[in-house]
C-alpha cells in the first residue's frame, strides 16, 4: 500500500516537473521524484540502491541547479501545437500497446522467477567470501558488467572535459 502512495506521489511530482514554468522549481520537483524513488527502494528491500540513489540524486541536483541558476527561461510561443500533441499521443499509445502485450507474460508482483539467482544465493558467500550478495554479484559473478560501466563513466568524463574545455590557444595568439 505504501508503495502505491509513493508511486502516486512520484507521478504528481513528475507532472509538476514537466509542466512548471520556472526551471528552478522543475529541477526541485525532479529532486522530489528521486528522493521518493530512494524511499521506494528502501521499502523494496534494496538498501544498496537506496544509498546510491540518495547520494547520486544530491549530486545530480547540484549539477542541474548549477547549470540552470542564472539562465532565464524565455516564454516559448508554442507553434504547431496540434501536430506536436497528436504525434506525442500516438507515440505514447504505441508504447502502451506493446507494454500491454508484454505485461501479460510477466510474473506477478511478489513472486519472481529466481531461476539464475538460486545458485548465487546458495553459493554466494562460500564462493566469494562477500556477505553482501549484491556486491558478490556485481564484482565477482558479473564483473564484466561493472567493467563496462567503468568504461562508460570514463568516456562520459572525457566527453565532459572535451565539451567544457577552455577556448583554445589560437584565439589568444591573434
Amino acid at each position: 500500500m505504501e508503495l502505491h502512495i509513493l508511486l502516486i506521489f512520484m507521478i504528481f511530482a513528475a507532472i509538476v516537473a514537466i509542466e512548471a514554468k520556472d526551471l528552478l522549481s522543475s529541477v526541485i520537483a525532479v529532486g522530489a521524484v528521486g528522493f521518493a524513488l530512494c524511499l521506494a527502494f528502501l521499502i523494496l528491500k534494496a538498501p544498496d540502491l537506496a544509498i546510491t540513489q540518495l547520494v547520486v540524486e544530491v549530486l545530480c541536483l547540484i549539477i542541474l541547479i548549477r547549470a540552470t541558476i542564472n539562465r532565464d527561461l524565455p516564454l516559448v510561443i508554442e507553434g504547431r501545437w496540434i501536430f506536436n500533441t497528436i504525434s506525442t499521443l500516438v507515440f505514447i499509445a504505441v508504447f502502451l500497446f506493446f507494454s500491454w502485450l508484454a505485461l501479460k507474460e510477466l510474473p506477478s508482483f511478489g513472486q519472481p522467477l529466481m531461476t539464475v539467482v538460486k545458485k548465487y544465493l546458495a553459493e554466494g558467500t562460500t564462493k566469494t567470501g562477500a556477505v553482501n550478495i549484491v556486491t558478490a554479484v556485481i564484482l565477482d559473478f558479473r564483473a564484466y558488467d561493472t567493467l563496462g560501466e567503468a568504461t562508460v563513466l570514463f568516456t562520459a568524463v572525457i566527453g565532459i572535459m572535451a565539451v567544457l574545455r577552455r577556448p583554445g590557444r589560437k584565439k589568444i595568439e591573434r
Binding site: 548549477r66 558478490a136 561493472t146 563513466l153 568524463v157
Partner: peptide, 30 residues
C-alpha cells in the same frame, strides 16, 4: 575477507569519486 572484491571496491571508489569531482570542477571553472 573476500579476496579481490575489496580491491575492486577501492579502485571503483577512487575512479567514481575523482571522476565526478572532475566533472563538477569543469562546470565551475567554465
Amino acid at each position: 575477507s573476500s579476496g579481490a572484491i575489496i580491491l575492486s571496491n577501492i579502485s571503483i571508489g577512487i575512479k567514481v569519486g575523482v571522476g565526478l569531482f572532475a566533472i563538477f570542477l569543469a562546470l565551475v571553472i567554465l
